[in-house]
Amino acid sequence: MTWQKVCPLDDIPMFGARVVDHGGDAIAVFRADGDTVFALRDACPHKGGPLSQGIVSGSGENARVTCPLHGWNIGLASGEACAPDEGCSHKFATRIESGEVWLDV
């Protein structure tokens, strides 16, 4: 695994996401309250919906994204679907350094 620079934090809208293309794989990088940044494989555990396009809410451990296709909620910190749904999206580590977002891919 390696750390890669993605973009300045300000390029990700608050409560929004950007899509990162990593050699053909789409990774969604989310920004939640309190300038916390999370990254998940951009595919919903339900039917592969693009999570990057969902509504982001909450912060820290409780941050989640609501999938735009059928409304599953996915925890951003864990990648796990919220009960009663079950499933998991692969998560990637992130960090912010001097206003830049980094991703461990």
Binding site: T2, D11, P13, R18, V20, D21, H22, G23, L103
Partner: peptide, 12 residues
């Protein structure tokens, strides 16, 4: 418009 763009990173 920037928000619509995918950000490429090379597979290392």
């Amino acid at each position: 418009a920037k928000q619509f763009k995918t950000i490429p990173i090379k597979a290392v």
